[in-house]
């Protein structure tokens, strides 16, 4: 049985449906990300789990018990907010101790647990600091310690890293992952940053306009995107319009002057999706011309004008000679590197 279960959850504000038909089963100890652009309903879903919003339809269950019947103050979930939401009038230690106080944990045990929690996030010695005298990264750690010290059944993270600069964000990602692995708390992260979702999660829930587009491991969602939205949202991709002709035998998949044996199933107009780093330059394939060539240190970025529209190609800087701007090339890729979807490319 799933640990946390969302069953066809929907949320409406007036006439507007913000989340619809959201079903997800989270296993104990799993790290799940809700990934999507702003306004896709990911924060609303998190708020419903936290209890600050009530679902219009559907059920949320924790270990089989209906969570929506429980007041947010009694759910025992740990939440880290985007703004950290630290209590500005309390020190770091008082912030962390607050949840324990509410649970009437004895004073001596409280002090011990606060110390351990702050040490775990690397803030030993900062007990008496006030939040306004801490850096963004430190505040973030206090918020994390405050959420974890109550031993929450689920940890909810609402864009916790979005206010940090790039370098600090990367450090915190690694640290967050290590802490989560160590204590094994079931975690849900809301983010719009696909790198963050991919580097942290066991599974990603990609959302768009209130609906789930795909649920899968980071690798699955990246390499086998279920929709055009997913392939576009998770990194750069090339979509080529192609057709599958089943009248000839064997059936063929054709895009411009490029043609391969068709995969089973689909027919008619389809979209062929290939990641830029999986495309190489060869002798047979989609004909294209290099428009710009940009050197980016460890790789080259090519913008090409192919017979099926613009294309991006990324090549490792492995010391080999690379084609120059204006050169006519052929784009090639292995059949297993492409995904084929029904319908014409947008």
């Amino acid at each position: 049985m799933a640990y946390l279960e969302l069953d066809r959850v929907a949320k409406q504000f007036g006439a507007m449906t913000v989340v619809d038909g959201f079903s997800l089963a989270v296993g104990k100890g799993e790290f799940i990300s809700f990934l999507g652009p702003s306004g896709c309903g990911k924060t609303t879903t998190l708020q419903m789990i936290a209890g600050f919003l009530d679902p219009t339809r559907g059920a949320i269950r924790l270990e089989g018990k209906d969570l929506t019947a429980i007041h947010p103050a009694k759910r025992g979930l740990g939440i880290v907010f985007q703004s950290y939401a630290l209590f500005p009038h309390m020190t770091a230690a008082e912030n962390v101790a607050f949840g324990l106080e509410m649970r009437n944990v004895p004073r001596s045990e409280r002090a011990e647990r606060v110390r351990t929690a702050l040490a775990m996030v690397g803030l030993a010695g900062y007990e008496d600091r006030h939040p306004r005298r801490m850096s963004g990264g430190q505040q973030q750690r206090v918020a994390l310690a405050r959420a974890l010290v109550i031993k929450p059944s689920v940890l909810l993270l609402d864009e916790p890293l979005s206010n940090l600069d790039a370098k600090l964000r990367e450090e915190m990602q690694i640290e967050l992952r290590q802490i989560q692995r160590t204590i094994g708390t079931t975690t849900i992260l809301v983010t719009h940053d696909q790198n963050e979702a991919m580097s942290l999660s066991d599974r990603i829930v990609v959302m768009s306009q209130g609906r789930i587009e795909q649920i899968g491991t980071p690798q699955e969602t990246y390499e086998r995107p279920a929709s055009a939205f997913v392939s576009q949202f998770l990194g750069k991709t090339n979509d080529f319009a192609a057709t599958i002709d089943r009248t000839s035998a064997p059936a063929r998949l054709t895009a411009g002057s490029w043609s391969v044996p068709a995969p089973a199933g689909l027919s008619g107009p389809v979209t062929v999706s290939v990641r830029p780093e999986r495309i190489g330059f060869g002798d047979v394939g989609l004909s294209a011309k290099i428009v710009t060539r940009i050197f980016q240190g460890n790789h080259w970025l090519f913008q090409c004008d192919s017979e099926c529209g613009p294309a991006i190609v990324i090549r490792q800087n492995d010391g080999q000679a690379q084609p120059s701007e204006g050169e006519a090339v052929r784009l090639v890729w292995r059949p297993e590197d492409m995904s084929v979807r029904a319908g014409a490319a947008a």
Binding site: A50, I79, S83, A85, M102, A147
Partner: peptide, 18 residues
Amino acid sequence: MDLSVEMAAVSLGANGWT
């Protein structure tokens, strides 16, 4: 006032008068 501060307190178990 940042409302999420209050929400944080609620999630930690505070309610009503407290």
